[in-house]
Nucleic acid binder design. Structure first.
Lengths: 349, 349
DNA sequence: TCAGATATTCAAATCGTTTTAAATTCGGTT
DNA sequence: AACCGAATTTAAAACGATTTGAATATCTGA
C-alpha cells in the first residue's frame, strides 16, 4: 500500500502537494499533477480511508436496518433495494452497514448501531405515520433519508413518489373510461404509503362525485392470494353491484385480481378493468400479465441513487431535501371502457 | 465526545495512562484505574473507532456478499444468518458490510469491495467444489472464514457440520431399522454440502453392502414441491421396487416427501420412513410436521458465533482454524421398522 | 535590476488512539 | 546515605490523510 509520503519521496515532493495534486486542487502545477498521477498509478496508490475519515470526522458508512417480519419472508423489494443501494452508495464512496431489527422497539436497533459510533447516518424505509424512528433520529440530530414519507409535508430528507397521485391518476384514467364503481385493493394500512394511496383514491373519487362503500376498499399484505380472495369476494355481488374496475396496490395483487375476475367467468378488460402499481421488480413484470397490466410505474431501483445522493449530501452538511416524484402512467391492455350497464355509481354524493 | 486527552486533563494524567487504564493494562495503579473509569463514565467517553483503526491497521469491518439467485428469492436461510451474524460480530466489535453479487464472475464483488480498502476480511457461504472465491482470497492473502467447506480437508478457516456424517448417520439409523431400499433426495449438486451428503450416503450404504440405482438419488433445489414430485416419481415403482425410506436434504423437502407418501395411499412411518436435516429455521419446524420428523439437527444460528469468532481471530493474526462439528441425531415419529416384505435390497453388491 | 504580484510548494499541526522507550516515584536494602 | 528494582507514569512517535499559514520560486512591469 503506497502512501502519500512514498509518492512524495519518489518525486521529491511533500505529502501535502501530492494530496492536493490527487484531489484536483487548482493551485498545483499541471506538470506536477501529471507526474504525481503517473507515480500514484504505478504504485497502485489508494487513499487510506480510515485516515481520511479520522481527519474529516466522517466515517463514510451509513446504516440500513432490516425489519424482519414475523413470517421471516424476504421480499424481492428488499433485494432490489439492497442491490441498488450498495451500488449507488459505492459511487459516493460510502458503504452500507447492515443490521437486523428483531426487537419490539423500532428505535432500539438505531440507537444500538449509533452507539457503535461508526455511522454517518441511516437510510430508512417503510415509513409509518408518526414514525418513532423519525422522532428519535431528529432528536439526536442524526442524519437520515427516508424512502417515502410519513406525511405529506415533512422537514427531513426524503425521496419517493407521490402516492396520493398514484391512486388519483388511476381513478382519473378509469373514470375517463366511464367507470363509476371502482374498488381499491390497497396495501397494509399501517404503512404511510397505503394511507396516502387511500387518501388520493378517496379524494379523486370524491372529485368525480363518487363514493365507495367500505366493502370495496380492502387493505392487506400485497400478495397474489390476497388480491384473489378480496376480488373474488367483491365480485360476489353480496354488498351491492360489483365493481367494474379495480385499483390494486401492486402488480402481484393485480395478478390475483385478474385471476379472480376470470374465475368469476368475467373478462379483463371487457367486463372489468384492472390497474396496478409497478415497482419494476425483475420477477413480477406487469407487461407479462395476460392481458398486459395498465399501471402507474415507478421503478424501485430508481429510488436508490437519489436516496444515496440525498443522504450523503445531508451528511456533508447540506440541508435536508425532500424530493417527491410522480409515477409514470402506462396504459396497457387491462383497462377499457366501462361495460354496457355498468355506468351506475354505488350511490351518488 | 470526550477524548483520552480530556479525561487525562481532568485528572492530571497523560492520554497514554488513560488509554492503558481503560484497556485493562496490568501496570496501571488500581486507584488510578478507578478514577479514570469514573471520569470516563461521567464524560460519556467512547473510543473513536476510526482513530483506533488507523493505529491498529484494522478496520473492524468484514464483508458478506449475497449471491442473488436468478429467481431473486430470498430464503429464510439468508435472514437467519444475517440476524445471527450481525449479533455475533457486534459482540466482537465488528461490523458487517453488505454487498450484492449480481455478476457472472463470482470473484468480482470480492475484488471490488476489497479495493475500497475498508474490510478486514470476508464471510463466505454456500461453498462449491473448487470455489474460485477461495482461490482468489488465498492468493491475495485476504482473511476469510467459510461456512462449510469446499472439500473434506482444507487449510482455510471454516466452520460447519460434517455433511458426510449427516447422511451416514441417517443411513445407519434406517438400516438399523431394517431398511434396505433407501432413497436420497439431495440438495443442488453444485454445492459442496450436497456433494458431501451424497458421498456420506453412498459410503454408508456401501458399508452395509447396499447400492442405490441412480433413479433413487435426486438432486434439486430444496423446496417442498421438489420433495413432493421426486418422491411421487420414486414411489411409482417404475424403476423397480419403491424405497421404504427417504433421506431428505431439509425439513422442507421432507415435508414434500411425506405429502407424496400420503398421496400414494401409504403411511409414515408404517410403510415408508422419512428423515430430514433440520437447520432450525423459525418457520419450518421439523417437530411440527405430522408425524414429527426424525432429523439430523444443526441450527444454522449456532454457526454464526463460531464464524464471527474464527474470522475475527484470524484477522488479528491467529492461524486459520477449521472447526467441523457433528449434527445431532433426533429420532422422532417419522422413522420406523421396515415394513414386512420390504427387506429386499435393490441389488446386492 | 528590482519591487511586487502570482504561482507553487512546503513544514507543521491536526484528528484520537496505541505503543515504545524513557522517566519518575517509592519502598526497601545495604 | 546511596543504591537497586519494582511500580507507575509520561513524553513522543506512529498511523495516513487534510489543511493552515508560511516560504520559496517565477513572472510581471517599470
Amino acid at each position: 500500500m503506497a502512501t502519500l509520503k512514498e509518492i512524495g519521496a519518489e518525486l521529491g515532493l511533500s505529502p501535502a502537494t501530492v494530496s492536493r495534486a490527487l484531489n484536483g486542487f487548482p493551485e498545483v502545477n499541471k506538470n506536477t499533477v501529471d507526474r504525481v498521477r503517473e507515480v500514484a498509478e504505478r504504485l497502485g496508490y489508494r487513499p487510506n480511508r480510515v485516515a481520511q475519515r479520522l481527519v474529516t470526522g466522517r466515517s463514510g458508512m451509513v446504516g440500513l436496518i432490516i425489519k424482519i417480519r414475523a413470517d421471516m419472508s424476504a421480499d424481492q423489494t428488499f433485494f432490489e433495494m439492497l442491490t441498488g443501494l450498495t451500488a449507488a452508495l459505492g459511487a459516493q464512496d460510502t458503504d452500507l452497514v447492515l443490521a437486523v431489527d428483531q426487537d419490539d422497539d423500532p428505535v432500539l436497533p438505531y440507537r444500538k448501531l449509533m452507539e457503535r459510533d461508526i455511522l454517518d447516518g441511516f437510510i430508512l424505509n417503510a415509513p409509518v405515520p408518526d414514525d418513532p424512528r423519525v422522532a428519535f433520529l431528529q432528536e439526536k440530530r442524526i442524519p437520515f433519508v427516508m424512502h417515502g414519507q410519513t406525511a405529506p409535508d415533512v422537514d427531513y430528507a426524503c425521496f419517493g413518489i407521490d402516492n396520493a397521485a398514484v391512486s388519483a391518476d388511476a381513478v382519473r384514467l378509469l373514470t375517463s373510461l366511464g367507470h363509476r364503481r371502482i374498488a381499491l385493493i390497497n396495501g397494509q394500512s399501517r404503512y404511510a404509503f397505503s394511507v396516502d394511496r387511500l387518501r388520493g383514491f378517496s379524494k379523486a373519487m370524491e372529485a368525480e362525485g363518487l363514493s365507495v362503500p367500505a366493502a370495496f376498499m380492502a387493505s392487506d399484505a400485497e400478495t397474489e392470494t390476497h388480491g384473489y380472495t378480496h376480488a373474488l369476494e367483491m365480485l360476489a355481488g353480496r354488498d351491492g353491484p360489483s365493481p367494474t374496475a379495480f385499483v390494486c396496490a401492486s402488480t402481484l395483487v393485480a395478478a390475483g385480481v385478474m385471476r379472480a375476475v376470470k374465475d368469476r367467468g368475467l373478462s379483463v378488460p371487457g367486463d372489468v378493468s384492472v390497474m396496478g402499481h409497478d415497482d419494476a421488480l425483475p420477477l413480477t413484470q406487469a407487461r407479462d400479465l395476460e392481458p398486459a397490466l395498465t399501471v402507474t410505474r415507478a421503478p424501485l431501483r430508481d429510488a436508490c441513487e437519489p436516496l444515496a445522493e440525498l443522504l450523503v449530501a445531508h451528511v456533508k452538511g447540506a440541508p435536508a431535501e425532500q424530493r417527491i416524484e410522480r409515477a409514470e402512467l402506462i396504459v396497457r391492455a387491462s383497462t377499457g371502457p366501462v361495460p354496457r350497464g355498468g355506468e351506475t355509481p354505488w350511490h351518488s354524493t
